[in-house]
Design a binder for these strands. Structure first.
Lengths: 222, 222
DNA sequence: TTAAAAATCGCACGGTCGTGCTAATATGTC
DNA sequence: GACATATTAGCACGACCGTGCGATTTTTAA
């Protein structure tokens, strides 16, 4: 579970403890840098400079730049899962869990888990062009996120807590859109209060998706 | 009106016709490249290679890379205004104009006016960090767009075509969010049918924002 | 304690970047 | 047609990029 950075390397290499620490330190710096300036401006020389080690010292840990990028994404995924997905799954199944996921995402942006806002929103915009292997990795991650949102919505619908006549895909799109733009604007303007627009948008979208007959009172607890 | 690329150069230089043509060709290629791979990977050498002219030939037209970036953004703004804003302003004032703006934006993405989707969505994500002068230019452009959406909404509210109790800023945020995500996803998956999610999201948001008493029938013409 | 191997460094390579400088060439004006 | 000058090419520079290689240092297991 906690062994994240094990892409297919595995076998004949007993890692040394100091090496593992450096490896982790590099990935941490890489995630911060990439979340602010994008994976594209993630540079081996720059990481080395910032960490006070040599370029070769950094390079030796990933034997190509692509590998460094992949591991950075994987490490960020682990953090995202821990900071956003797991807290939401702790909420009771159904509509509450949908709300928890949205709240959890906005809080993750607000707390500055990554200094440049949501790590994956950055990726989404950066690799919309077919830029090789990274593009596919981004698509897979995106699909997973969208799938999760949709799944939680569908469950809420089965429980009668959201209008079952609304396509889950469509509702997922709308919630996702609010989360993303809240992230972008709050990052661009460096103003976390903009996240409240996202919160209100999520709330009003969910209100509009309440099952028929449960309307008229706009909010359950306002 | 059509003289776009006149940043403060103006005075003592009567441009020659061939030079002006090259200048325009460079900007065209620059916009295409930047919309697909971002302003960051806009490179003088690469532009030269693609256009079959020398690096110095490109460089001479903008006397710094920053200037090239600024002019590229300015040129893209002109196209955006022509392709999105002006058609919307041709629609009758009020709610219709709000709908026209959203439709016009999504159509602009769909038609592939820029090969990498919306030029400014790319910028929004790329310069969320404080990366110098370009950042400010992006903020200004963003503010202008958001202001336009908000203004059209406010007008529709004054005319009683949208619920005046909803904050115009909030409604603008929600519509904008749908447009942006539709752009991102359709670009990422290279599937323009994803834009229909945006269209439906816009429609349902506007329906939910209809003035009180005009509800119950979900769509005016469905 | 010693030996194997992992971690790190220093150095070098070819490539591309942005940017100057000078020289050749094309255009538009008188 | 000639002259001024805008345009473009050619070349060089220093900086940084990713990547390889050998030497050195540090950890760890026998």
């Amino acid at each position: 579970m906690s062994r994240v950075s094990e892409l297919p390397s595995a076998a004949g290499s007993p890692r040394r403890s100091d090496g593992e620490a450096t490896h982790a330190a590099i990935l941490k710096a890489a995630m911060q840098l990439a979340s602010v300036e994008g994976l594209g401006s993630l540079t081996i020389g720059r990481l080395a400079r910032e960490l006070g080690i040599s370029k070769s010292g950094v390079f030796a840990h990933f034997r190509s730049k692509q590998r460094l990028q992949q591991e950075t994404i994987a490490a960020a995924e682990a953090i995202f899962t821990h900071e956003v997905v797991e807290p939401a799954l702790a909420a009771p199944e159904g509509r509450a869990r949908v709300e928890a996921l949205c709240a959890s995402y906005l809080s993750y942006v607000e707390r500055g888990v990554f200094p440049g806002g949501c790590f994956f929103a950055q990726l989404l915009a950066e690799f919309d062009g077919p830029s090789g292997g990274i593009h596919d990795q981004v698509v897979i991650g995106q699909r997973g996120w969208m799938g999760l949102v949709k799944e939680l919505i569908a469950t809420a619908q089965h429980r009668g807590e959201l209008d079952a006549d609304i396509e889950a895909d469509q509702l997922a799109f709308e919630l996702y859109a609010h989360l993303e733009l809240a992230n972008y604007l709050s990052t661009l303007y460096r103003d976390t209060s903009l996240l409240d627009r996202g919160r209100r948008a999520v709330a009003s979208t969910l209100t509009a998706a309440s099952p028929r007959g449960m309307r008229a009172s706009e909010e359950p607890s306002a």
